[in-house]
């Protein structure tokens, strides 16, 4: 008797329900939150860093740098008030890079595998991870704003609400950038380079510490560079939103960069390229 072998796929549900997607998102955000709570030093240092800038740097610089009335401000402002949005963006910049650091760590420690063998689409998993990191950075920024309020940085009450969407978008952009960078880092030790080549240039060549017209007086060339820096636009988006205004140019730049960085990160974590691009022998 001849037996015809028919290999039919085992029955299983295909696709995923909206509930499954939401459960997955909540789970990833929940874990990120737990990890954050467990790392109190991380929270404290995330808070101390901008406060040092605010309490020491800004206080010292106040006399050196006069700020004229520029939008969105309607009166003369103190230097501390000027740099507050830049420091909020800085918190997010560090957070974005830190979560990329934790992705490299996760990859070395194998936790990344747990995430990526989930049956849900990989792009969605990375997006959830990004959203989770952004949620943490937004919490950090609000903690900073609370302390800054006692330091006389008092944006209009509605500003605390209108700044939220700006923070989410800028957090996504900087997180996606971190994720993109993390895909290129082979080892944890290489992370010091990220500090030197990403965080510092991005922060200093931006409108975080000084208004662009001031920069232009000194060096037009540097002003162009600042203008092209996506971080400048994250800062301006936050600055305007904090005073209940919308900076369309910054919104477009931050939105566009978020999309580009995110697509780049998803492609970089594409399985066909190997999620761990280690050299041969790294994987035995």
């Amino acid at each position: 008797m001849t037996v015809t072998t028919v290999h039919t796929p085992a029955p299983t549900r295909s696709g995923f329900s909206a509930g499954e997607y939401i459960t997955c998102l909540i789970g990833i955000v929940w874990r990120e939150g737990l990890r954050f709570l467990h790392q109190r030093e991380r929270f404290v240092s995330a808070l101390v860093r901008p406060l040092v800038w605010l309490f020491i740097f800004a206080a010292g610089f106040r006399q050196v740098l006069g700020i004229s009335i520029i939008p969105p401000y309607e009166t003369y402002i103190l230097y501390e008030v000027y740099i507050a949005p830049g420091l909020m963006a800085m918190i997010q910049l560090f957070n974005g890079m830190q979560s990329s650091l934790s992705m490299v760590y996760d990859r070395e420690m194998g936790n990344m595998r747990t995430l990526l063998v989930s049956p849900l689409p990989r792009g969605y998993l990375l997006f959830c991870k990004l959203l989770a990191g952004t949620a943490v950075s937004v919490l950090q920024v609000y903690a900073f704003l609370v302390i800054a309020w006692f330091w006389d940085i008092t944006p209009p009450p509605m500003g605390y609400l209108t700044v939220l969407p700006a923070l989410i978008l800028s957090g996504l952009m900087l997180g996606a950038l971190g994720m993109l960078i993390s895909s290129g880092i082979k080892q944890l030790e290489n992370f010091a380079g990220v500090m030197n080549f990403v965080i510092f240039p991005m922060f200093f060549a931006s409108s975080a510490l000084y208004p662009l017209w001031r920069v232009e007086e000194g060096s037009p060339w540097l002003a162009y560079l600042c203008e092209a820096n996506p971080f400048t636009h994250a800062v301006e988006l936050i600055r305007f939103a904090l005073y209940g205004k919308l900076n369309w140019v910054s919104l477009a730049v931050v939105g566009g960069c978020t999309a580009v960085f995110m697509i780049g990160a998803i492609l970089a974590y594409d399985p066909s390229r190997g999620f761990v691009r280690r050299g041969p022998g790294g994987e035995a």
Binding site: G27, W30, R31, L34, R35, T114, P119
Partner: peptide, 18 residues
């Protein structure tokens, strides 16, 4: 995840599977 509890590790994995 060494810093999470046994239960938290399991719940996280379950969430990843929806």
């Amino acid at each position: 995840d060494l810093d999470l509890s046994l239960r938290q590790n399991l719940l996280y994995h379950a969430a990843l599977h929806g």
